[in-house]
Amino acid sequence: MRKDDGIGLWLGSRLRLKFKQKVRVYLLHQLVPEIVEELKEADHIIFIDASSSNEEWSLRRLSLGEEEFQPPLNCDFHTFYPEELAYLLKRLYGKKPEIWILSVKGENFSFGAGLSLNARRLAKEAENLLEGLIRVKLKDA
């Protein structure tokens, strides 16, 4: 509905087709706390979303060091972050999966379907990188 806001959906759908049974893909309207019930089984998690920052795309690993972790839980459920899910996984299930966050810059978030040309280009670049990362993780597993 919001054009480039669908970058995560676009990438997730393509990864689902490429990796079929090997990778479980969840396409969500928003992050919700109960998704931890699904994520608790995972060793590696990649969150993908559109970004409005100036950086074209970024892939960063979420650090879950005991000493540096400050639970950032929100007061409401309208906004929920990967860090919060990581906290829930750790505290509720004792799980510390390897977590990556991929952000891809969108330029058009107005009403409409489909990605802008630039967003599609960036998403494809990010897709190549992600594919490489997933293949390495699958090989290691």
Binding site: H29, E34, L88
Partner: peptide, 30 residues
């Protein structure tokens, strides 16, 4: 969560079940 992790897990699971009913019928949780 720090004091009653068992209750927090219960809350997560109950919400998940309710959302699962909605998703099963409509394909979407929200």
């Amino acid at each position: 969560i720090e004091k009653h992790p068992d209750l927090a897990v219960r809350g997560v699971k109950l919400r998940k079940y309710g959302q699962e009913v909605i998703k099963t019928l409509s394909g979407k949780r929200i």
